[in-house]
Each structure stands twice: as C-alpha cells, then as structure tokens.
Design a protein around this nucleic acid. Sequence first.
DNA 1: ACCTGAACACCGTTCAAGT
DNA 2: ACCTGAACACCGTTCAAGT
Lengths: 226, 226
Amino acid sequence: MVKKAQSSARREESLSRESIVEASIALLDAKGESGLTFRALADRLNTGPGAIYWHVANKADLLTAACDAMIARAMNAAQEGATPREIIRNVALGMFDTIDEHPWVGSALNRAPGQLPMVRILERLGQQVSSLGVAKDAQWQATSALLSYILGVSGQNAANAQIGREQNYDRETFLQTVAASWLQLDASEYPFARSVAAQLSVHDDRADFLAGIDLILRGIEAQQAD
Amino acid sequence: MVKKAQSSARREESLSRESIVEASIALLDAKGESGLTFRALADRLNTGPGAIYWHVANKADLLTAACDAMIARAMNAAQEGATPREIIRNVALGMFDTIDEHPWVGSALNRAPGQLPMVRILERLGQQVSSLGVAKDAQWQATSALLSYILGVSGQNAANAQIGREQNYDRETFLQTVAASWLQLDASEYPFARSVAAQLSVHDDRADFLAGIDLILRGIEAQQAD
DNA sequence: ACCTGAACACCGTTCAAGT
DNA sequence: ACCTGAACACCGTTCAAGT
C-alpha cells in the first residue's frame, strides 16, 4: 500500500494508446465511471495529464476505446451456437454478462451511437438475422430492434450499478428500496406497478433479459410466416 | 435581448420546486444537457446557486424531476386508442416524439432506473399488456421487454442529438458520417454493416422504432398462442 | 516526436452569515 | 424558514516549455 513511493520515477515503457486504454479499463473496473479522470490515469501511468492527449483525442474517445476493447472480447467469446437463433441468444447473453461485470461498458456503449463498439454487435446480430432467412428489406429493422433492446437493458443495468456504487447499496437493497417506493404509489393510479413490486427483488434479471430476446425472435418468426 | 439588465433585482415570486423545475426544462431545451448548471439556473432565477439546494436535493434529483414533468405530459397525451395494442403503440410513439423534441429526456430517463418517470411508462404499458390477455406470470417480462426497448431507442436518440449539438451537425450530416465510416470497414468482417450503411441516412427512425414495437407485440401474441 | 505540469475555465456542493 | 455568495474540491483541456 505504498503510495507514490516512486512518484518521480521514469516509466519503464513509453506511453501508447493501448497502455492508456488498458489502464483506463483497470480504473473503470476498480472505481466505476467517475474513477476515470485524466489526473488519476496520469498518476497510474506515471505521467502528466497532458501527455495522454498525445495518444487520445479526448475523454469520449478514451471511453469509447475502452468500451470497444471489452465488446471485442465479448463478441469473440460469443461465437458458438448451432443455429442462428442460438448464436443471437449467446451474443445477447455475452453482452449481458459483460455489462454485469463491467457496468461502465453499458453507459459508454449508449453514449457512442454508430461507433465501432456498437457496430460490432450490430454486425454479429445482423449476420444471424440474415441467416434466419429474414427478407433483405426487413433485416435492418429486425436487427436494430434486437440491438436497441440490448442497449436498453445495458443502460439500465449500468445505471443500477452506478446508483448502487454511489449509495453503497447492493443489488438486493436497491431493488427493495425501489419496490417499497412502488408500493407507496396510489393504488388506483398504479395498479400494475404495485402488482409487480413484490417480484421485483426476487426476479432474475438475466432470465428476464433473455425472455425479451425470445419475444423479439418470435416476432421476427411470426413476421416471416406472413 | 437585454442581458442581466436588472441582475440585482429581487425576484417577483419566491423560489419553489416547480419554478426551479420549469426553469431547468427551459434551460435544457435551449442549451442541451450541458446547459443545466446550478450557476446558469441561479442566474435565470435571479438567485444564488446555494438557494436551489433548499428545494432540490442535488443535480440528479433536479434532472429526474424535469424528466418526470415531461413524461407525465407525454403519458397524459397518449391516452387514446381503441385496443390495448393501439394504446401501447401510442404510448411508445408519445415517448419517441417527446425525446425527439427534448433529447435530454432520453438520457435523464435512462439514468433514473426505478424512479417515477420510468414507473409512469411501465404502468401504462403494463395495464395494456394485462388487457391484452397476457397471463399474470408473463406480464412483467412482456412489459419490461417493451420498456427496455423504448429506453434503448430513447437513449440512442438522446446520444445522437447530443453529438449533433456538440459537433454542430444536423441529423443528415451525422448519419452520413456514420454511413461513410461503416463503408470503410473490412468487407469480409463487416458485410452486414456495409450492406445497411446505404439506407442509414434515408431510413425513417420513427417507422423503425414502431416496427420494433410491433415485433415485440407479435412475440407476445405468439407466446399467448402456445 | 513525445512529454511535462502549470494554468484556464469551468463544475457540483457546502456552509457561515444574513433576513 | 429561506436565501446569499464565497469557498472547497474537484473536473477536462490547453499550451508554452522542455527533451
């Protein structure tokens, strides 16, 4: 736990985009979204904040690069599956698990529309939607529906984790707090919210997520049957 | 266009949570997400930044309150529809249009999981999913699938608008930039992204959004037929 | 070509002091 | 009870100066 014992020591290796991205990921994993600052990063890399700008355009660029490294790994790991349908489910679950472990990926992803991280996911999904036999002119809509759904869940999981970190809540405590607040809503105005409040803290996020994917896949199949 | 002509003038009305939220919405609409600061808000309200904290817990609270006001309006406007299916589509379109006009609502919404703004949407959707005849134990999954999809699209639209504002791009220019970057991807690795790049700048976001809702609704119906 | 680190122009939030 | 505004502890980013 020695702090900066060698603060003025020279780095052994020179800075590079990769080493900066790697250090950013470590920082984000350890301290969450707010943990990534140019000063903290410079400390960890034994350099000054200005040096980082030689290799990286700005913070958004850095965050997207860190996110992309994570997505690339997740997409490579989620290759297998016997049918297009199974591969789509595996890609989706790969995303879910990545964001479960690294919540910051969820918000970084949502803040970089059209960028490489998102295109990686779009590509995997699109190829399988195509293999599913969806008509050429319906492939975009089917694929972007899947992608939007995945991004939606990712964003929420990221936000949940963020709040949990800020308030030192675990998942359980957070959901119980939410459930309690739903139960205090007006009974005639919010019957549905109140009726599902109870299952909120016991439900399985991952299973629910997959159920949503299945719903969209069924919709795609039903459309093909027309 | 007189600026601060009366900067030291007393406010005519005293501060209130409502007036603060109202001023926040005006600021967010005019200057985007980054336009909402306690200093800018204090200026507009002829007060100091500290005064705002008497009525509002912190910035997250303020943003959620502003978001909630917008969602409440949208949900009240999207009441009509002959069938549950039509009401669901109208609720979804109401959200789409709200975020199209006020992009900051999309990101505020995504950052406040379990909070009132989201519950308002969940409730509307849930009531209609229930009316659709979905079995009791499948209602939560169907409703949250719809909600997650809506949140996903909302988040992307918000991010698109945010980038557009930062770079002074209009929608068209932004999408053309994205399409151009997709066309530069490796042809064997990214066949799908390249094949859809062309339609990217001419596609109709709103129609695509609705197509996704329809896909999920079909999935729900298919599940009921089991 | 790459790095340094002080400086700039901001933030959200707090809090003693006022009314 | 409510407001004031200076002060605190941060940010991302820039840039003259170094090597």
